[in-house]
Design a protein around this nucleic acid. Structure first.
Length: 99
DNA sequence: AAGTTGACGAAAT
DNA sequence: AATTTCGCCAACT
């Protein structure tokens, strides 16, 4: 069981309509490698629901905000308008998934 | 083989 | 409250 497999397993475990922060995923693995989680998504994220893993504060991954938004709307993930560059932010208070 | 980089986060200044 | 530093792990140079 490599770190990569563990990350993918956790992400695959996130139910539709819920999200988790990079830090949460790392913490679930018993590590603080939030950064490494991002790398795993960048390299292997194509096979999982990468949009369900967001940055702390509920901000979508930079550069992928538009694609992620489509998925959120399709899954019914509560979003809330924001003045950031991304234009929106995820409502973690109501859709943050906890194992 | 060794050093740098990166979809990051939290703690320390 | 805002910056800076550090920790963590895999891929890339």
């Amino acid at each position: 069981m490599s770190f990569v497999d563990a990350v993918l397993a956790v992400v695959a475990d996130i139910p539709s309509g819920c999200v988790m922060t990079y830090g949460d995923v790392a913490a679930l693995l018993g590590s603080r490698a939030a950064r490494a989680v991002g790398q795993v998504m960048a390299r292997y994220g194509s096979d999982v629901a990468w949009w369900r893993v967001v940055r702390a504060g509920g901000r979508p991954p930079p550069g992928y905000a538009d694609r992620a938004r489509e998925h959120y709307e399709a899954e019914g993930t509560p979003l809330r308008p924001s003045s950031d560059d991304d234009g929106y932010r995820i409502d973690l208070a109501s859709c943050r998934w906890r194992p």
